[in-house]
Simulated assay, not measured.
Amino acid sequence: MVSTDKNQSTAVMIILLGFSDYPELQVPLFLLFHIIYAVSVAGNVGMILIIKINRKLHTPMYFFLSHLSFVDFCYSTIVIPKLLENLVVEEKSISIKDCITQFSFGITCVMTEMVMLAVMAYDRFLAISYPLLYTVSMSPKLCSLLVTVAYSWGIISSIILTYSLLVLSFCGTKIINNFVCEYSVFLSAACSDKHISELIMFIVLNLNTFCTLIIILTSYLFISVTILKMHSANGRYKGFSTCASHLTVVTIFYGTILFHYCIPNSKNSWLVVKVGSVFYSVVIPMLNPLIYSLRNNEVKETLKKLMDFKIISQ
């Protein structure tokens, strides 16, 4: 239960300023984010449907990709509608309970995506380093287990971080120079001691980030060694090409998060912080399906067949 002052138990509100400092950009930003959201939904849902329809894509790699697309769809749906609303309404407030709810679902998606990216790196490692044993090693049962682990860890992490917020006291109305309910928003709005909450956040976020990053880097280290040992130039090209989409997504995702959290929360850096927040919470869920579809021949062929079928049916 969220703690509040007795006289203000029902009046705890957070005002997310968002991009209020730039009133002339409200309408252009609304249109831009609306387009990004539409592309993100179409791309991620389309990716799931394509993988479902095409039997050739019923492989571990695409099984994990479909779940990555689902997580991206959920995350953009959690964040962007509220962002769009704040761009067109004068009252930009959100109750502390609604803000915590948005954070809880959002951090579940972020933590799940980190683990999913690590799982996908492990999958590429097995596929390239042990191709003859890949089908047996990456069995449907193991695939389901790894996906379950990803979702479970995302939920567990969210419960821990959300609980660390629920024990804080909030009072009155807090004006926050952001557009999304991040952990820093609650720490800024808290009226009670927040050292324990900060410690929990530090441990959980860093544990999740660096553990998954170590798995990814280790997997790609062994992948690189295996590819470089190949005598055929064509084989090396195919090996690197197989990993290109995933490696691009990982670089953008972790690069943005690390850059975002390394910026000090000073007044001069708030614009950069908000741009970073926009990129990892709005742009990345749109980029992921585009990166995979543009660099994947099987997905492009399926899209072409669907378009041809649509034209013929008309």
Rank of each mutant, 00 (worst) to 15 (best):
A189R: 05
T251S: 11
L271S: 15
E182D: 05
M286V: 05
L205Y: 12
F73G: 00
V250K: 00
M286D: 04
V41D: 04
D5T: 14
V12P: 11
K141P: 05
H34N: 11
F30E: 10
H67N: 11
I128Y: 03
F125V: 08
N177I: 10
C191Y: 07
I311L: 02
V275L: 07
I15D: 12
S20Q: 13
F64W: 15
N265G: 09
K82P: 00
S69C: 10
Q102Y: 03
V278R: 02
R55Y: 09
C191A: 10
K92W: 02
K229L: 06
L29E: 11
L68M: 14
E182P: 01
C171G: 07
I80F: 00
S219V: 12
I203A: 04
E301D: 10
S66T: 07
S137K: 08
N44F: 01
N44Q: 08
P28T: 09
L205H: 13
F30L: 14
F19A: 08
F70D: 12
T226M: 02
K194H: 10
I155C: 02
C191I: 08
S9A: 15
E301H: 09
F210L: 01
L57W: 09
L32V: 12
V136E: 11
L142F: 02
V45N: 04
I215D: 01
V79C: 01
I312A: 08
M138A: 11
S95Y: 07
P140K: 02
F240G: 08
E85C: 13
F70G: 02
P264I: 12
L213Q: 03
T209I: 05
S245Q: 01
R55F: 11
Y134E: 08
A11D: 13
L306K: 15
K97V: 12
A42L: 15
L306H: 08
L187V: 13
I214T: 05
D72H: 09
L25P: 08
L16M: 14
I128G: 06
L16P: 10
K238Q: 15
C181N: 04
N268W: 11
S76F: 04
M201Y: 14
T10R: 13
L213T: 00
T256A: 05
C262H: 02
H246L: 15
P131I: 01
S104A: 15
T218A: 10
Y62T: 03
I227L: 07
T302R: 12
T4L: 04
K267E: 13
I36K: 04
M47C: 14
K304A: 10
C211R: 07
V282S: 05
N7W: 10
S40A: 15
A121I: 00
